[in-house]
Design a protein around this nucleic acid. Structure first.
Length: 163
DNA sequence: GCCAACGTTGGC
DNA sequence: GCCAACGTTGGC
């Protein structure tokens, strides 16, 4: 039995990992590691499934914006970067039998025809209750189908496409 | 670089 | 289990 496709917004600082970086990975695919917030972890571990849509958002830049569309291609699995003492995402509490942190794999789909900035989103009542506007610090967050459609339209994506 | 929001830690 | 201190995020 097939679950309805769900939608998400993933934030990334482009100086660290940009949407173009995702596009240049083999198969346009990369694991989304380094999330160290329990609310986001729960989504990655339990809720986010292959086939789901992802809005790729650039944070910590002069014009923070949704810049592209990606798709989930692998469901949650342990984030091994927490186990690497030399890595910046190391967490001494994590172990092989106690992963604590999870990640999914995402694949590049396509950029928006034009980025949809945070400033622009704030002007539209249709997306006023987005998590992005209410609890902006959450780095992995749910998006409703209506919000997804609205943002894609703002971003100049009108034709249907396959995720 | 500042600072508000807010999640996490740790003393009690 | 409360709550103050502290650290991080991220918009501006």
């Amino acid at each position: 039995m097939n679950r309805e496709r769900r939608y998400w917004l993933f934030k990334s600082e482009p100086s660290c990992f940009s949407f173009d970086d995702l596009g240049s990975r083999p198969n346009g695919t990369e694991h989304w590691d380094g999330v160290r917030n329990f609310q986001a972890r729960n989504l990655l571990r339990d809720e986010i499934k292959p086939g789901d849509g992802v809005l790729f958002y650039h944070s910590n830049v002069p014009d923070p914006a949704v810049v592209g569309i990606a798709r989930v291609v692998r469901e949650g699995y342990p984030d091994w970067t927490a186990l690497d003492p030399a890595g910046e995402h190391f967490d001494p509490r994590a172990g092989r039998n106690n992963p604590i942190w999870y990640m999914v794999d995402v694949r590049y789909v396509k950029p928006l025809a034009r980025p949809v900035t945070l400033a622009e989103l704030k002007m539209h009542p249709e997306v006023a209750d987005m998590v992005l506007l209410q609890r902006s610090r959450l780095s992995v967050q749910p998006v409703t189908p209506a919000q997804w459609e609205f943002i894609l339209r703002l971003g100049g994506i009108h034709e249907p496409f396959n995720l």
